[in-house]
Amino acid sequence: MNPLDLPCAWGAPPVRGRVRVSPEDFVVREWLGFAADGDGDHWLLTVRKRGANTHWVAKQLGKLAQIHPRDVGFAGLKDRDAVTEQAFTIPVRSAMTGDWAGVSGDGFEVVAAERHRRKLKRGALRGNDFEIVVRDLAGDRAALDGRCKLIAAQGVPNYFGPQRFGNDGANLTRARQWFSGERELHDRFERGFALSAARSAIFNAVAAERVRNGTWNQLQAGDVANLDGSNSVFKVDALDEVLRDRCDRMDIHPTGPLWGRGELVSQGEVASLERRVADAEGSLASGLATTDLDQERRSLRMRLAEFAWALEGPDLRLRFRLSRGVFATAVLHEILEDAFSQVHPESDE
C-alpha cells in the first residue's frame, strides 16, 4: 500500500492552491513549554533558519563552538523548506566565549541566547506553532469555512506526512529491502530512518482503515486510549458514557500501533483489525518484530489549538499549534487537494 494514499476524514478537500511558494509561506516556531534557567553549563540558543535543515545548522554551530556535533542539543527536527525558529544548546565550555546573540551563518541566525542547566534532548518540547500561506487559492471558498470550523471542533487524522518516508519513499524502500534480506543497512542514521518509515507506514494504514470505517475519532471496546497532549495511554476494556463524553470533548483519543516486538496492547476487534492491516504490509511487521523497538501507541486523532484561518485576496492564511511529533501536512491534507505532493523531499518536519 502507498503510505500516502490516505482517505480524508471530512470528505474531498474543498480547495486547491500552492504551498511553500517561498520559505516565508511556511513559518514554524518551536514551543518548548519552558523558559531558560538563567544559569548553568549550557547556552540555550533561539535560532531562526531559512532553507536549512536542523542537522546542518547543528553542525555549523558545532564548528563555530569547536565542539563535536553530538554535543549540540536540539529538541526536534524542523523543515528545511521553511522559515523556522527552534532551540539549540551549546556547552559554555566551548571555544565561543562571547555572547551568541547575533551570531549567524549561511541560512541561520541566533536571535537570543540565555544560560541553561541542561543539554536539550530529542523530544524535549511541547509542540510547534505554524503559520502557513496557501497561494493562488481556487475551488469552493464557501465550503472552506465550514471545513475549517469542522477541523477546529473535531480535529483531523494524525497521519504521518511524506517527510517520514523520504524522497520518493526511499526510507520505506530501504526498510522493505532490509527486512527481506535484499540489502544490509550499516549506517545507524539510515537504519533509524528506515525503522521510522516502516512503523509510520503501518500506522498510516491502520489509521486509514479506521477513517474508512468511521472509528478514527470514536473509542471502541478493546481500544487503547491516549490522554490528549501526553504520552499516557490506558486500555478500554468496556465503553461507558463517561469515556464517550471524554472522547467527544477530545480529552482522550483512540490510538493505533507503532509496530515492534511484543504483543499488541489492544484487544478484540481492534487488535484483529490492526493485525490484519499489518499482515498486509508484508515484511514490515515481521521485520519490526525482530528489532529492539517495543510495541507503542500513537493517537489516531490530532487536535489543533489556536486554529485560525483568513482569506487574503487570492490566498489563504492558516495559523495553529500542534503537539510534538505530529505533521502540519496532515492538516493541509483535509483542506487542500494534493497537499502531500507539495512537500519538499528534504523537509524534516
Score class of each variant (00 low, 15 high):
Asp145Lys: 05
Leu150Asp: 04
Gly181Ser: 11
Ala194Tyr: 11
Thr173Cys: 09
Arg141Ile: 10
Phe160Pro: 00
Ser196Ala: 15
Glu190Arg: 11
Asp187Ala: 15
Asn171Thr: 05
Ala142Asn: 01
Arg174Asp: 15
Lys149His: 14
Val133Trp: 00
Gly161Val: 05
Arg176Lys: 11
Ala153Tyr: 03
Ala142Trp: 01
Arg188Gly: 06
Ala175Val: 07
Gly192His: 07
Gly161Asn: 03
Ala170His: 13
Arg135Trp: 07
Gly166His: 07
Asp145Tyr: 01
Glu182Tyr: 03
Gln154Asp: 09
Ser196Trp: 05
Leu172Thr: 09
Ala143Glu: 11
Asn171Ala: 07
Arg176Ala: 04
Asp145Phe: 11
Ala142Gly: 08
Leu195Arg: 12
Gln163Cys: 02
Leu137Pro: 01
Asn167Glu: 13
Ser196Thr: 03
Cys148His: 08
Ala153Phe: 11
Leu137Ser: 08
Glu190Phe: 06
Phe160Leu: 06
Tyr159Ala: 10
Glu182Val: 11
Ser196Glu: 00
Ala138Gln: 13
Cys148Trp: 14
Arg174Ala: 15
Tyr159Thr: 01
Lys149Asp: 14
Ser196Val: 03
Ser180Phe: 11
Lys149Ala: 15
Ala142Arg: 06
Phe189Ile: 15
Arg147Phe: 14
Arg164Pro: 02
Ala175Leu: 07
Arg135Met: 04
Ala153Ile: 01
Gly166Tyr: 14
Cys148Ala: 13
Ser180Thr: 08
Gly169Tyr: 14
Ala175Arg: 00
Phe193Met: 14
Arg183Gln: 12
Gly139Pro: 06
Gln177Thr: 07
Ala143Arg: 02
Gly146Gln: 08
Cys148Glu: 09
Ala152Gln: 10
Gly139Ala: 08
Ala152Val: 01
Asp187Leu: 14
Asp187Met: 12
Asp136Met: 09
Gly169His: 09
Asn167Asp: 15
Ala194Thr: 04
Leu195Lys: 02
Ala138Ile: 08
Val156Gly: 00
Asn167Gly: 00
Arg141Gly: 14
Leu195Gly: 02
Tyr159Ile: 06
Gly192Val: 07
Gly192Ser: 12
Gly155Glu: 06
Phe160Tyr: 12
Val134Arg: 00
Phe165Gly: 03
Leu172Glu: 04
Arg174Pro: 00
Ala194Gly: 08
Leu137His: 04
Asp136Trp: 07
Arg135His: 09
Gly146His: 09
Asp145Thr: 05
Arg147Pro: 08
Phe160Met: 02
Ile151Val: 14
Val156Gln: 02
Glu182Asn: 11
Gly155Ile: 08
Asp187His: 12
Ala175His: 01
His186Cys: 12
Val156Asn: 01
Asn171Met: 03
Ala143Asn: 00
Leu144Phe: 12
Thr173Val: 15
